[in-house]
Structures are given as structure tokens and as C-alpha cells.
Design a protein around this nucleic acid. Structure first.
Length: 291
DNA sequence: CATACGTGGAC
DNA sequence: TGTCCAAGTAT
């Protein structure tokens, strides 16, 4: 299975900026934060502009959080911009300006959880870690587990299975683990997709347990649908869009025009200020934060 | 462990 | 056209 995936990746990998040999660990870290729940196509232009403007953690740490939020644009989940800024600050003040290499150290950075810590350690530094993202989980669930979708949350058995599949260390100390990780991710992103897997283009089709079983439909607990219309998330998004698109502070009237329901609007306004995404700069004026 | 958290493209 | 989904994290 290893050689098959590695060969397929060598032939079909997309040329992404954060995968190039010259990509810095900072570029990798920025890409990983941006890619959390966000498609590659939308990340590409924002990532390029971000690295151009803030080529190092120290450069971002010197900017305001408001600048980071505005540069985040419409990637969604703007708290990630705040976390990335906070991570850059921590890297600058307590890690000598260099993105940490150790998984455990990476894990202490804001916005960096198990997946991102393993991904940065693996992709930026070549360290051997199990990288369990939604793509890897799905490929393993199908190819090895024989089911269409993995469980809602990562189980111990699932992690053990992924660890067992991870390429080992060669006699010379090298390992294919990092390429294996990104290869499995790429396979899940391009071929073994959630809704319409292209098994006719899959290098693992002949040994896939799910295909062998006749591609049985998912029969686990119902996967919760994301609601959107009328939620606080939609309201917060509307309010943030007003601030992002403005040159400076905006009057409360502009925010009132963006969301009709007063009670919900005020609750969301409070939560955005509480999160540090907005600042009240006058009795009836709001702005992106300047700290 | 379930839930909140943005946004827009695909089918 | 509405539903599903995208390299998760924090609480």
C-alpha cells in the first residue's frame, strides 16, 4: 500500500506553495491554519498575500490584530486570524522567532491542535507523526475499514490503525512518513472524496475493503447538518463583513443595517467584542481591534 | 463528548 | 434549490 500511494502522489500531487522545497515552516504553519475547514482554492490567494506582507512570525506579531482580521478576508472563522496572530506573538517572544519543531511545543500555540501540530512537524520538519485529518480518516476508513465514512470523532482504534500504517524509519534514519501523510491526504482530496469518490481513478481500488464490500452506504449515527440561516454565525459574519469592508470605524447604524433583529445583533456584537474580533471605540462606534 | 464557529462552491 | 462539504480548534 505504501509504494502505491507514494507513486500515485509523485504523479498526481498538486503544486501548492506550501509544499515546495523552499517553503518555510512559517509558510506551512500559515497554510495549515488557513486550511482548517477551508478549501485549497480559497486559501491560495490569501496565503500568497499573507506571506508577502508578513514573511516571518515577527512581522505578523508587529501588526495589529485588526490588520490580521482584515487580511484574513472571507476565509471564514476569523477567530483563526486572531489565533494565528497570537501564535506569531508566542513564536516571537518565547521561541526565538522560529516555528517550533516539536509536536508538543507546537501544540501549545493558539489555534494549533492535534492535527495542525502533527502536520507542521511532519510537513515542515519531516518528523514522523500520525497526521489524522478528515481526508486521511476517510481513506483509511474505506480502504482498510471497509466503511464509507469514519466515526464522528477519532477513536483509539482508529488512531492505532493509522499508526500501524505509518511508514517506519529506514536504516539511514530517513522515513517516508511525511510523504505518506500528504499522499493520503491528497488521495482523499482528489480521488477518495466524501460525496463522489472516483474509484476508477484510485490506485488502491484493487485492495480497498470498501470497494470489495460493494461500496455499502454509511449506516452509522446520522451526521449532523450545519444550520446556517438565522444563526449567530450568519449574524456575526454579516457584522464582520461590514467592518472588513470599511476603511475605519463604523457607526452602529451601519451594523443595524446589516442585521435587522436587534436582540440577536446586540448579542453577536457583544460576543465579537468578547472574542477580540471587534472593538467599541466610541459610544456608538465600532472598529477592528488595534492591539 | 457535543456544540459553536464563516464562507462559498458543487451537485 | 437546498443540502452537503472543506487540511479543525476550543470549550
Amino acid at each position: 500500500m505504501h509504494a502505491t500511494v507514494l507513486e500515485w502522489y509523485a504523479l498526481h500531487a498538486r503544486d501548492l506553495p506550501w509544499r515546495r522545497p523552499e517553503a518555510s515552516p512559517w509558510s506551512v504553519l500559515v497554510s495549515e491554519l488557513m486550511l482548517q475547514q477551508t478549501p485549497v482554492a480559497r486559501v491560495l490567494p490569501v496565503h500568497a498575500a499573507w506571506l508577502e506582507r508578513w514573511p516571518t512570525p515577527a512581522a505578523l506579531a508587529a501588526a495589529t490584530t485588526g490588520d490580521a482580521v482584515r487580511a484574513w478576508g472571507r476565509l471564514g472563522y476569523p477567530r483563526r486570524a486572531l489565533r494565528l496572530h497570537a501564535a506569531a506573538t508566542a513564536i516571537t517572544t518565547t521561541h526565538g522567532g522560529e516555528v517550533p519543531q516539536a509536536y508538543e511545543t507546537l501544540l501549545t500555540l493558539p489555534g494549533v491542535g492535534d492535527y495542525t501540530a502533527a502536520a507542521v512537524a511532519s510537513f515542515a520538519y519531516g518528523r514522523r507523526h500520525v497526521v489524522l485529518d478528515t481526508n486521511v480518516r476517510r481513506v483509511i476508513a474505506r480502504a482498510v475499514g471497509g466503511v464509507e465514512h469514519p466515526a464522528r470523532s477519532v477513536t483509539r482504534a482508529e488512531r492505532d490503525r493509522a499508526a500501524a500504517l505509518l511508514p517506519g524509519v529506514e536504516a539511514d534514519g530517513s522515513s517516508d512518513a511525511a510523504t505518506w501523510n500528504v499522499g493520503l491526504m491528497e488521495l482523499g482530496a482528489l480521488v477518495c472524496t466524501a460525496a463522489s469518490p472516483a474509484c476508477d481513478r484510485c490506485p488502491l481500488v484493487d485492495r480497498c475493503a470498501w470497494v470489495a464490500a460493494g461500496r455499502p452506504a454509511y449506516d452509522g449515527p446520522p451526521r449532523v447538518a450545519q444550520t446556517w440561516a438565522g444563526t449567530d454565525r450568519q449574524c456575526r459574519g454579516r457584522l464582520m463583513a461590514v467592518l472588513r469592508d470599511a476603511d475605519g470605524p463604523v457607526p452602529i447604524s451601519a451594523l443595524e443595517a446589516a442585521w435587522a433583529g436587534a436582540e440577536q445583533r446586540e448579542r453577536c456584537l457583544r460576543s465579537l467584542v468578547d472574542d477580540g474580533l471587534l472593538a467599541q471605540v466610541g459610544p456608538s462606534t465600532y472598529a477592528l481591534p488595534t492591539d
